[in-house]
């Protein structure tokens, strides 16, 4: 019962780990580039949650600044990633990452 009603830092860390793992699973098993980008965003959010938990744990506010910068980088990454998806789609009419093998040969 205490693990349900006594929320501690561990709960937040485990929640972040679960979100990160779901993100990793999405990157590994899905083939659509858009879903992969969304999963990357999920992983970044999980990392942010870990940062904020440790920030609260040790009373250091600078992790909030770091998380803010991570959010900005994630926004930039989403913009560039989606631009690449649009460019790829324009060339080959699909965004399936398993069919993007031109650089392999």
């Amino acid at each position: 019962m205490s693990i349900i009603f006594n929320i501690g830092y561990g709960h937040f860390l485990v929640l972040a780990a679960v979100l990160f793992l779901i993100g990793v699973g999405g990157v590994l098993i899905r083939r659509n580039a858009l879903i992969i980008l969304m999963s990357v965003e999920l992983m970044l959010n999980a990392a942010n949650m870990t940062l904020l938990t440790f920030s609260r744990m040790w009373g250091d506010i600078s992790a909030h600044t770091f998380a803010l910068i991570v959010i900005a980088v994630a926004a930039a990454e989403a913009a560039v990633g989606l631009a690449i998806v649009v460019a790829v789609f324009r060339g080959r009419r699909n965004v399936d990452v398993d069919r993007l093998t031109t650089l392999r040969h």
Binding site: I29, N32, L34, A75, A79, L82, F89
Partner: peptide
């Protein structure tokens, strides 16, 4: 913001997947 960006790109592509999982 990011949700709007994703929705826009999905609307531009507008293609159903045939085989989603690798």
């Amino acid at each position: 913001a990011i949700m709007v960006l994703f929705v826009f790109v999905i609307m531009i592509l507008n293609r159903p997947e045939d085989e989603p999982v690798a």
